[in-house]
Simulated scan of single mutants.
Amino acid sequence: MKRKKHTSAEDEAQIDMTPMLDIVFIMLIFFIVTTSFVKEKGLDTNRPEDNQSNNDQPSKALSIRIAADGTIMMGGREVDIRRVVANTQTYLAENNTDSAAIQADEDTEHGTVVEVMNQVKVAGIAKVSVLVKKG
């Protein structure tokens, strides 16, 4: 009986990786094809543009403060809610602006804030920001 000589490590059995790689690529293609991409629902935001070098930039925004008791302050003086349109138009005549900032107290009634927003929009300012001041 003839004995086999010991073979080197290179002659030992090896695992063929080709079928495993084929299966991995087939699974990858399957998952790519079956994945569904859904546009998420939410609010669209209007982000400001980066170009800040315009010389005809509007001046600072019209500032309106509403206290917790409903008192409206424009330009450092108290204004009646029925006179917001007139005061806003006067401000627009003197200043080049296209925005207004309404700073309302946390305890201010929402109806008052909405009414002031409507009055400012009627006066001709389209961009209105609302800020809440915590008491």
Rank of each mutant, 00 (worst) to 15 (best):
I29R: 04
Q119W: 00
N51H: 12
G75T: 09
R47P: 03
E10P: 01
I26L: 15
L92S: 02
L43G: 03
T90A: 14
R3D: 14
N46S: 06
G42F: 06
A68D: 13
Q89I: 06
T88R: 00
V38W: 12
K134P: 02
K134G: 02
T71E: 05
N46H: 07
Q89F: 03
R47Q: 13
Q14H: 12
D80P: 02
G76R: 07
H6F: 14
D22H: 05
T108H: 01
S59N: 07
D16T: 07
F31T: 14
T71N: 06
A9F: 13
G76A: 08
A67Q: 09
M1E: 05
P19A: 04
V130Y: 02
G111F: 10
Q103M: 14
I29T: 12
K121I: 08
Q14A: 12
P48S: 07
P19T: 06
Q14I: 11
I102V: 14
N46F: 09
E115A: 08
V116C: 01
K121T: 07
M1D: 04
L92F: 04
S129M: 06
G42L: 05
K39P: 04
G70Y: 04
K60H: 09
G135I: 10
T90K: 10
Q57G: 03
I29C: 10
V122I: 15
I32T: 13
V128S: 00
V130N: 00
D56M: 12
N96D: 13
A101S: 05
E94M: 12
Q14C: 06
V130A: 02
I32G: 05
T108Q: 01
M1S: 12
K134F: 10
E10C: 05
R77H: 13
K2T: 11
N87Q: 14
K60D: 09
D69I: 08
V128F: 01
V113D: 01
E78G: 00
L43H: 06
S99L: 02
M117G: 02
E40N: 09
